[in-house]
Nucleic acid binder design. Structure first.
Lengths: 127, 127
DNA sequence: CCGTATCCTAAAAGATACTG
DNA sequence: CAGTATCTTTTAGGATACGG
């Protein structure tokens, strides 16, 4: 399966750094897609195709990868309904729901920062 | 200088996605080092070498890159004191200080999740 | 002391084709 | 419908050497 170099400094640092609870947390929800997926599930279960359709730009591969990872880490519960055609849905776990107020605040902060950048013409370029 | 592909889907997605205030915010503080740097500055100014020495594993290159980026985005204020040897210190801006309660909560959440993983033996492996 | 420059590796993300 | 498998591209991160 997926090969992983365990001895690169990169890898070592990645592990080492999660001794800090803060960076540990950031790792759980970091990356381009995770929070985007989680917040779509804020109001209840969604199935694979619903998630895919609501998250613009995501490929099925990336969606699968992120879902699997978050399931493994206890953030998502995956339910397979034995029927044809198959139906699988995803929902937030308890510990994931505890993130909701946090990501709401982050969202507010993001909005505020964006506004600030626009108004004060902070030199943030587009990349 | 640093070449960037502007037309890769990767790049386009990265931009597109920041229309969401939440992912926008995550981008500002994401990555391995940013929050780690910010939280070191929670209690006041620090100079370059102090930051370097307090953040285990970081290279000068990475520290510089992250500092420059966060300065550009209005999260850090950089002050150069005209003296020999040179002295440069970094401090949080107002908007960055507004993140403090958020990262504190994230830190708590991280601690809790870590504990849960340990107790319930959630299948989170070591990478 | 506070960085830059150059080169390199590893990981993240994407394209495309295919399947139970 | 809900994914896998395979391969390629792009970016993040690191090693090392050097400079004002």
């Amino acid at each position: 399966m997926a090969k992983k170099k365990e001895n690169s400094t990169n890898s070592i640092n990645a592990q080492y750094i999660t001794e800090c609870d803060l960076t540990y947390a950031v790792c759980k929800i970091g990356g381009r897609w995770k929070l985007l997926i989680l917040c779509k599930l804020e109001n209840g279960k969604l199935r694979f195709s619903e998630l895919r359709d609501r998250i613009a730009g995501i490929t099925e591969r990336m969606l699968t990868l992120q879902l699997r990872e978050m399931e493994k880490e206890g953030l998502l519960k995956r339910t397979v309904h034995a029927q044809v055609p198959p139906r699988v849905d995803y929902e937030l776990t308890e510990i994931a729901r505890e993130l909701i107020p946090i990501w709401r605040q982050l969202e507010d902060w993001g909005k505020k920062h964006k506004k600030l950048v626009k108004e004060q013409v902070l030199e943030v370029d587009e990349n």
